[in-house]
């Protein structure tokens, strides 16, 4: 078996900005003193005249991005998810969301896999926050290939987009040559009849691995990658609900307000089936190596297998 290549989605984000900039002169990038970490530095090095550091002032950065968008630019405003979605929430809501401006928010260091920096920087609430803003598109790519494709799609789409990237290098499982990304379209990675695992972000790869283990134990699990959490692909979820009757959601985000909530809301209204949410429970994280934290918080294939077996036993 070939060695698994691991790349953090934030790396792919920086690469994509650099690549797209060559063909899109409207593209400008803003950062809030985190260019080295968000990887917008890749763009900055090639296009310094289109890169603007706002300093440690995320609220202002979001407003500046709004003004740029209102004047015909396609601005990417970057910071850690905690500050982009958290600190600047109300500016994103009122200065970007309400006027529906063409601003792209590149939020990196999302989730518990921030690791050693600990709870203050582990943003498990950003999807929940962004979901409440009317017209906001939310994309949470599962690997580097998807991340790059998502950035390209966000540039082509007119309107506000929140892109969520991770700090941790994670396995590349999509094939760049054949991969197709469409905003709002979930991707079925494996068919199954007993249960469906709906995952997003770095949990997608864990879900695929978990499905293999479940298969060996006689449970046929369908796996769906929901890269776009809003607008969510209702069709693929409702079809899975009808055909498998049980859904497990897996995300590196709070179980409150994220993918799990979005999926539960979707099925509750149109095809009620049990939904078991795997994610960060209603608690804060803490410092530690990312890989260890993911295991500790149950954001791993082993926990998906355990929770799925439990659910199958309980509901099927």
């Amino acid at each position: 078996m070939a060695d698994v290549i691991k790349i953090a989605t934030r790396e792919s984000y920086g690469e994509a900005l650099k690549e797209i900039a060559a063909e899109c002169d409207k593209l400008v990038v803003l950062d809030a003193d985190l260019a080295e970490a968000t990887k917008t530095v890749k763009f900055k090095k090639e296009y310094p005249e289109r890169f603007f550091d706002c300093g440690i002032a995320e609220a202002d950065m979001m407003g500046v991005a709004a003004g740029l968008a209102a004047s015909g630019k396609i601005p990417f405003a970057s910071s850690f998810a905690m500050f982009a979605a958290g600190r600047a929430f109300e500016i994103v809501r009122n200065s970007i969301g309400y006027p529906h401006l063409n601003v792209k928010i590149g939020a990196t260091h999302a989730g518990i896999s921030v690791g050693e920096d600990g709870a203050t920087h582990q943003c498990n609430e950003d999807i929940a926050l962004m979901r409440t803003i009317p017209g906001m598109v939310i994309i949470n790519p599962a690997d580097g290939v998807e991340a790059k494709a998502a950035v390209k799609a966000a540039v082509e789409y007119v309107g506000p987009v929140y892109l969520r990237f991770g700090r941790l290098a994670t396995p590349i499982f999509n094939d760049e040559a054949t991969y197709k990304f469409e905003i709002g379209k979930g991707i079925q990675l494996k068919d199954g009849k007993d249960v469906t695992i709906v995952a997003t972000g770095l949990m997608v790869n864990e879900a695929v691995e978990a499905a293999k283990l479940l298969e060996a134990d006689g449970i046929s699990a369908r796996v769906i990658n929901i890269h776009t959490i809003k607008p969510i692909d209702k069709d693929i979820i409702l079809k899975a609900a009808k055909e498998t009757g049980l859904i497990i959601t897996a995300e590196e985000h709070s179980i409150i307000g994220g993918l799990g909530s979005a999926v539960a809301e979707t099925v509750a209204e149109e095809c009620p089936v049990p939904v078991v949410r795997i994610g960060v429970n209603d608690e804060f994280g803490h410092s530690g190596p990312a890989a260890d934290l993911l295991k500790e918080f149950g954001l791993c294939k082993e926990n998906i297998v355990a929770k799925t077996k439990e659910a199958v036993k309980k509901f099927k």
């Binding site: 609220a59 202002d60 979001m62 500046v64 003004g67 740029l68 968008a69 004047s71």
Partner: peptide, 12 residues
């Protein structure tokens, strides 16, 4: 918020 947006317009 408006002054930040004005900054963005001026920057553009």
């Amino acid at each position: 918020q408006g002054i930040s947006v004005a900054c963005g317009m001026a920057l553009a």
